[in-house]
Design a protein around this nucleic acid. Structure first.
Lengths: 343, 343
DNA sequence: AGTGATAAAGTTAAGGATAAAGTAAATAAC
DNA sequence: GTTATTTACTTTATCCTTAACTTTATCACT
């Protein structure tokens, strides 16, 4: 037996009141007397009323929903972002629509259109590796839907509201630390440089090396991915060329995982034979042997700031002007990149 | 400058046609002549029309949205479930609303109500550890909203549609394999037994041991969690008691990770000093040393079957009757649990 | 010429909730 | 005792789209 959902109208009929009175009572509107409100609420409870959110949204021109667009899910960083964005949304009585671009700019655009059509109140997005056409984002802004970029942001960013980590500074900090420990032969397995995270991490590496007058060996500066197979392949390439550095700075932790695997396979040891540090922190790094040191980028902080800006933007609307927030990274030293420094 | 979204009405006015004509044309309804349809579409394009999905949903009493309720996000298994459910939804032109119960039955209930209020067309859920009141699920069914349980299912399950892995069989297979390799001193770090996955994995362990006439050492059968700290603590407990088995069967892979960490800390080696196998497969297991063997439960298969059932149920509606699907597991041997068998 | 069928629109109502404006009765103000 | 203000509701209009029905025009056939 199917049960039709109870509507305001059903309650209204039962009590011989108008739908609007019911609506107001349930929203604690002062128009309605406490006595009636109480009565209405008890009847609503009894009938098992749940508001039809689509109708409410249509009427209110607001959905209490925020849309999230990420390039991937099954990646620790984005998993963590999704989780903390979700948590904050939930605490603020917002629902979240999750969409995944799978690194396709076309899908990304489609998702944004869908989110607009769904009348989300705000959008948080981490763009794809290949996103170059920024006009979609302008369109979103023209529609008056607040959009905040997180971690992977468009460039130039000045017209957009963005939060990201200090990629260049983080990389710089790590490399400088390594240099101070005595490392000289340092490689960088970098990502794509058309996206800020790839470019900035590379330039942090470069700057740190240059500032300390250490020559960069071009054959040690690779470029081309963020995944474990890229780390694996890159290591193997250098290994086969018998051209291994002392330390590899990996652009992401999956790249470092690929390195771990390759190192294991060829029978070398970390950190004795080859050492590794990476950008990005994931819980599993603790369980590797040795535990992997990294540059931590707080996903909680990123999400919190992004969501705060979204909420502020939703309230202010017209007067909100774009801003760019850059948050600090933290060097987390575990079992790698600790030369001369082992307890 | 804020732009109001273009509606059917705007197009209608511009062309001096009725809204309905526009609506029909854009949906390729045969009522409208190809010529007019073409004209309307071009104007819609030019004005940048996007349908208001909330209005459409309200009118159609259907949302093209499916709701997903999981206990956690930042866990490989659920991350993978989310990703593949999302992919299938996307391919079928559905959106996905993700909600996370954080293992709280109360939140779970609230999420289900929200999803109903949002008029999702179907719900996929993996229940919390503490869910005991099944009346919420009955309520969902009475509302005519298809609901499919995935992996963690209520018990008894006969009134519900469920997909899960053969937990008992998978555990049995692993233990039997270990016994055949010569392992005798086998421990089980189990989860909570009030949830099917904890209970069934334990009984697979028990049955395999009994069937091969191997006595179960009660002090090796622990119970109480699915997370890494539980694995860590449990190992440490046995270690301090100087009561270590040869092989530990961990109820989940995070439990195994905790074991890895503890083993490392006390300076033992896997698999030489103590060996591990776990239920559940995650990519990172390949990057551990040694790579962790496990019982693989195909998240893709689980999701695919769950979604197929949801779609079928959405179409059939009234006549759909609950069914329970159990899919097979696969033993994945990597670097652990391979005694006498090392190449 | 008159009937019927078909094509291509148009009209109305419904979906459920809410904002804005309106009304009647009770209370307050002077 | 008349006017102003509150209180507690009700009525109406709106959000935008779609299903179901109706109208008008055109053409074919007897």
């Amino acid at each position: 037996m199917r049960e039709r959902a109870v509507t305001l109208n059903d309650i209204a009929k039962k009590l011989n009141l108008s739908t609007v009175t019911i609506s107001k009572a349930l929203r604690n509107h002062p128009d309605i007397s406490p006595k009636t409100t109480k009565l209405i609420k008890s009847v609503a409870d009894e009938l098992g009323y749940t508001p039809n959110i689509m109708a409410r949204n249509l009427s209110a021109r607001k959905s209490n929903t925020i849309g999230l667009v990420v390039p991937k899910i099954a990646h620790f960083f984005f998993g963590a972002i999704i989780e903390s964005v979700y948590d904050i949304a939930f605490q603020n009585n917002y629902e979240m629509i999750l969409t995944v671009s799978q690194e396709s700019a076309e899908r990304e655009k489609k998702h944004l259109q869908t989110l607009l059509a769904m009348k989300v109140d705000g959008i948080i997005i981490s763009i794809t590796q290949e996103t170059s056409d920024l006009s979609v984002f302008d369109m979103v802004e023209r529609r008056g839907v607040p959009i905040v970029f997180i971690d992977r942001v468009p460039e130039p960013a000045n017209n957009f509201t963005t939060v990201k980590v200090d990629d260049r500074g983080g990389a710089y900090k790590a490399i400088e630390h390594a240099i101070n420990l005595g490392y000289r032969k340092i490689a960088h397995f970098g990502g794509y440089t058309n996206i800020n995270i790839g470019k900035d991490r590379l330039s942090g590496f470069r700057d740190a090396m240059n500032d300390h007058n250490i020559e960069i060996n071009p054959s040690w500066v690779l470029e081309g991915g963020f995944g474990d197979n890229y780390g694996y392949d890159s290591f193997m390439k250098l290994y086969n060329e018998k051209n291994l550095p002392d330390l590899i700075f990996a652009v992401t932790y999956p790249v470092a995982l690929g390195i771990y695997q390759a190192v294991n396979e060829v029978g070398l040891r970390i950190p004795e034979d080859i050492d590794v540090i990476c950008f990005g922190n994931a819980k599993v790094q603790n369980f590797l042997s040795p535990p992997l040191s990294c540059i931590d980028q707080s996903t909680d902080q990123l999400s919190k700031i992004a969501m705060d800006m979204i909420f502020e933007n939703i309230e202010k609307k017209e007067e909100y002007s774009p801003r760019q927030v850059v948050i600090d990274t933290e060097l987390v030293l575990r079992g790698t990149c600790r030369k001369f420094n082992k307890e």
